[in-house]
Design a protein around this nucleic acid. Structure first.
Lengths: 234, 234
DNA sequence: GCAAATTAATGATTTATTCAAG
DNA sequence: CTTGAATAAATCATTAATTTGC
């Protein structure tokens, strides 16, 4: 369908030089090792001038879980590259087996897998088909959110049925309720939690990494695969 | 509900059953190889038992921008590793120079840098002190959000001042307004934009990637600089 | 029976909130 | 009290289901 080609636009650079006293402004090619061999001179601009890409798949940016940067980054990337034959990267389409595993994990209590967990899950699921860490990450995000949403809705419904018994919102066609509502759902715990967690904690060397695995980031405790014991480092 | 999903396969339906109580008990451990080894028996519990991790820095997980997985992942990681000497990773403390650059970029119109941009910015700012891609990522996220918030507040204030001229909220100590309020602030544009972007799109080969760089992701239309017309794409 | 049209799910992003270090 | 960090909610976009007209 759509091929993404970049319109090699030439962006102009930043006209106004900041002139901030210090001279940091330009990302001058210096440090930028040019990983990119500086394509169009975009680099020294320090400014994104590009008109913005038109094709959705032309450039994806994204926020993805740190696991990405961990060691099997290469693997994942490789995978990705292979995946994109011609048509833009189509979105991940989980295989039944993959879903099965994911759901099991979820039911096991996993809610927000950390980098290692994601790495491993990804690796495991990779056996059933193409998959990237971000897919796993997103899956949990979405699943968690939707599960909660579903429960909330159910609770409301139950409530209304129980109480009024007649005032069914009716407007449920799709997803009726917008936010709001707090209901009391949510089993217990998991309320007001929010802790820091994420990112690059994986230090401890890739090598060392293989130490302990189970470390449920949130409230889970399950041990996914009998794999290498991930370093529990601390 | 209709069960569909997966052609053929018959495993249990969707993740959560609509009704609050219906719980698909068995997970049919089929594919999951061992998860069964169940460490603490947590698995069959299906519920999160873990009390939660204790050390904040013990495990960070996080969502980080794709750039992470790109090629200088190694670099970043390296950096991270070095950063975490013993005490938990203290949060990034931007140096004046770094901020200067970041603000400049922001003013220039950059709102949501893509992976490459982040990579490069990080690299550049690295000259002024320790910094990771996520810092850049977060900085933009926060700056954007707070800037918007600030503006909104200012607008409201202006409005009230203009109209009533006497009813100053007074309750501004911190952030008075929680969400809500729509006012009319927000210069213009920048409403309802949202496009896909992120993640691993960098395919096209690292080599190819070095094609277009600039692209200001969002809708900023400020005319600070005589730049491109900002693709209005949609 | 099959393919275009429609609808329901759900993968992927972005925005809004919240938490907590300094 | 400022703001880096992280999570949750809201959205958007694409694909699988299902329906409908032939």
């Amino acid at each position: 369908m759509r091929l993404h080609h970049f319109h090699g636009v030439a962006y102009f650079d930043k006209p106004a030089s900041p002139s901030p006293s210090s001279s940091p402004p330009s990302i001058s090619s210096s440090s930028l090792s040019s990983s990119a061999t500086t394509p169009l001179g975009a680099l020294h601009c320090l400014r994104p001038l590009a008109p913005k890409i038109s094709f959705p798949e032309a450039r994806k940016m994204v926020v993805l879980p740190e696991f990405a940067r961990v060691r099997n980054a290469a693997r994942l990337l490789h995978c990705t590259l292979l995946q994109v034959p011609a048509s833009g990267t189509t979105r991940w389409n989980p295989s039944p087996d993959q879903i099965k595993v994911l759901e099991m994990l979820y039911r096991g209590g996993m809610r927000t897998p950390n980098s290692f967990q994601i790495e491993q899950i990804t690796e495991e699921l990779g056996k059933y088909g193409r998959i990237e860490g971000k897919n796993v990450f997103y899956w949990f995000q979405n699943h968690k959110a939707r599960e909660r949403q579903k429960q909330k809705r159910a609770a409301l419904l139950t409530l209304s049925t129980t109480t009024t018994l007649s005032s069914l919102p009716a407007a449920e066609t799709k997803d009726g309720l917008r936010k709001k509502e707090e209901a009391s759902s949510e089993d217990a715990s998991s309320r007001k939690r929010r802790r820091c967690r994420t990112w690059g904690d994986v230090h401890g060397d890739v090598t060392t990494t293989t130490e302990v695995v189970a470390d449920c980031t949130d409230d889970v405790t399950l041990e996914l695969f009998p794999l290498r014991p991930q370093g529990k480092a601390n």
